[in-house]
Design a binder for these strands. Structure first.
Lengths: 210, 210
DNA sequence: TAGATTGTTAATCGATTAACAATC
DNA sequence: TAGATTGTTAATCGATTAACAATC
């Protein structure tokens, strides 16, 4: 779809555009200029136009951008027009939290299973699902072909599990353990600890100077 | 502590150094060169030396870096030598997950309270804590002076709650709702939805080309 | 048409990489 | 001492910002 390689830093801004355009659309606003859009998002107008023009000329001179159609374009770029079956690996607190996090479903992410190896958890309810035995994952995949595996297991087991998921035909990994996964699959890691450490830095450095 | 303004992109790499150096230290390894360190972390040796030299000359020509002392220096830079009292606002699944997330405690983060406005949740156990009434937060703060507020509440309430926490003397906000908080306090936001959307992009773009 | 705002090229800024003298 | 590796300056690369002709 894209011609030149789009920098990851641009991609990471797309969800912000998408969310804000969704809000505007819900508010019934039809058009917006790069100027106004940039103000709201804390970008520059130039940056907005540069970002969007990686993917095509969505705007119109003298008018700006149509909110609904721009939202839809970004949605397509992000792949949100497709549907993804998500499986959660690890039925701890974090697994439950992700499963029940509101807002995923309406963006095409459907949670189809949650697995654990702990006998105490297997069979328990989790949202509308029941925790399944991790040993049954392979069979489950053969039938259901899930797309995304959300890994909320201890870091010791993560590398191994990542390999398994790859073999089972998953298309991407959403990783919550603080381990850098090496996989040929696309991986997106959420580093909670790193985020908290960064906050600690901001706090302690802002206390010292300025 | 630092002379020149350190780019945030450098700060965000520090936790990775810190984690890896901790691992090395646990393994009993005493020294490491920028060369070897960079390989493991996927940086370049130049970048490692540049990063570290924002804060001072921690290395020694012909030798490299002492693992333990470098780890300690980074720990100090990140402010991990200090202690932080963390309060969780919102006792849903995500609040529980954060509270019980292993590894925070040993880095100086101590969870001292969890609050909610839902009568069904108030009084319930959460880790070693009991969910308290959000109305009692102010009084709690006057006595306990917590440092960090972890916001796991719906985005509609987040902006307001952020203002309150600022007034109550919090020093930093760890935000899990997809709202850009404007506060004079340091804020670190974890965008779960954005992260999942980015994964969707990676999946759908890798499916198309290369 | 005149005004507004894009798409796009050029200029600037900042971050990464390369190179090497200093030195342990 | 000789070898290794840092700290730091200079060169390169990439991303952001500015500017403006094209055009709705």
């Amino acid at each position: 779809m894209e011609q030149k390689k789009v920098p990851l830093v641009v991609i990471r801004r797309l969800p912000r555009y998408y969310r804000y355009l969704s809000d505007l659309n819900d508010m019934g606003i039809e058009r917006i200029s790069s100027q106004v859009l940039s103000k709201k998002l804390g970008f520059t107008a130039s940056q907005v136009r540069q970002d969007l023009n990686f993917f095509g000329g969505f705007g119109q001179q003298g008018y700006g951008y149509n909110v609904k159609s721009l939202r839809n374009e970004i949605s397509k770029i992000l792949g949100l027009d497709k549907h993804y079956k998500v499986v959660v690996i690890g039925a701890g607190n974090l697994g439950h939290a992700i499963l029940n996090y509101p807002g995923f479903a309406k963006r095409g992410f459907k949670f189809v299973g949650i697995f654990d190896n702990n006998p105490d958890l297997i069979g328990k309810k989790a949202g509308n699902l029941t925790v399944m035995n991790i040993d049954d994952l392979e069979e489950f995949c053969e039938k259901d072909h899930p797309d995304i595996g959300a890994l909320t297991i201890p870091k010791e087991s993560t590398a191994n599990m990542a390999k398994k998921l790859e073999a089972f035909g998953f298309k991407g990994l959403w990783n919550f353990s603080h381990v850098e996964i090496t996989s040929s699959l696309p991986v997106e890691t959420v580093h909670l600890t790193d985020s908290l450490m960064t906050l600690a830095y901001k706090i302690s450095s802002s206390a010292v100077d300025d």
